[in-house]
């Protein structure tokens, strides 16, 4: 069971309090009704499946109940950073340094 740092509860909590919620940084288009079929299918059906760093959504369902985003390495299964929903993708170099500081 992983430990996941919740950016709202400000501490690492057991994985079973959380639920994975798919790829992050896919915003629902404001003018969704006027998308072409191609645009809609890109938005709704297509997802990345990278080997390595992935940006994904989690919800601290059985905690503060907030959705948030995370960068996780799918090879090592390690979280690089978690951050509130709505924030831009973080600079992972800086995040890795922050992480290293936090770990010592």
């Amino acid at each position: 069971m992983l430990l996941i740092h919740c950016p709202y509860c400000e501490e690492a909590r057991p994985e079973i309090e959380f639920r994975h919620a798919g790829e992050a940084h896919i915003a629902r288009p404001a003018d969704i009704a006027s998308l072409t079929d191609e645009e809609f299918s890109r938005f709704f059906f297509y997802r990345d499946n990278p080997k390595g760093i992935t940006f994904e959504r989690w919800r601290h369902l059985h905690g503060c109940a907030r959705f948030f985003n995370a960068a996780r390495d799918t090879v090592t299964d390690k979280f690089l950073v978690t951050y509130p929903a709505g924030e831009a993708k973080p600079d992972l170099v800086e995040a890795a340094n922050e992480n290293a500081k936090g770990a010592t």
């Binding site: 919620a21 109940a65 907030r66």
Partner: peptide, 13 residues
């Protein structure tokens, strides 16, 4: 509830 929270928190915050 999860579906509604998802839209509320992340699409229509």
């Amino acid at each position: 509830l999860n579906h509604m929270e998802d839209y509320l928190q992340t699409e229509f915050p």
